[in-house]
């Protein structure tokens, strides 16, 4: 419901569309169809236009995501420091595979560079960032998420 409250803080001009979508993402985990319809009215756009925007960006989600998302950076700097071994360790520990949705609780993805290349390999679990991760750290990092 909170979307009305967000709209109060933003004028209905085009430059505010992306910030509003990001705000919605902050309070809800994903952007619902009803939200898009309401936004379309507010910004005087078609729902299609808004959906094409919301589905374009990495940070925005248009579907519910009940899983814990683990991201391992696949940039060259992180790869050089052994990101592939870290990824392999995560795959072994959780019995999942990158890009495969089958696991009910976890999802392993790659991510775009965070600009932390001097502290690699970088692993992100939901919104939390871990730096200089070794394969031996994987157990510790994930233990709080495995119940």
């Amino acid at each position: 419901m909170g979307i009305q409250k967000i709209l109060l803080a933003y004028e209905p001009v085009k430059i505010n569309i992306l910030p509003v979508l990001k705000e919605i993402k902050k309070i809800k985990e994903y952007i619902e169809r009803e939200d898009l319809i309401e936004l379309a009215k507010y910004f005087d756009l078609s729902v299609e236009e808004l959906f094409s925007l919301a589905s374009f960006f990495d940070e925005l989600k248009t579907k519910p995501e009940n899983k814990i998302i683990i991201r391992v950076c696949s940039g060259n700097a992180c790869t050089n420091e052994g990101a592939a071994l870290v990824r392999r360790q995560i795959e072994l520990l959780l019995g999942i595979e990158q890009g495969n949705d089958a696991h009910p609780k976890f999802k392993l993805e790659t991510m775009s560079c965070l600009g932390l290349c001097d502290c690699g390999p970088i692993v992100m679990v939901n919104d939390q960032i871990f730096e200089r991760v070794l394969p031996s750290d994987v157990d510790d990092i994930l233990s709080s998420y495995i119940k």
Binding site: K14, I15, N16, I17, L18, P19, L21, K22, F43, L45, L53, F56, F57, D58, E59, L60, S112
Partner: peptide, 21 residues
């Protein structure tokens, strides 16, 4: 203005597009 995680938005015309919603 904060972007939303797209490499292509570093290209200036793509950046303008994303500012325009």
């Amino acid at each position: 203005f904060s972007g939303a995680g797209a490499y292509i938005c570093g290209e200036e015309t793509a950046l303008i597009n994303s500012l325009e919603g």
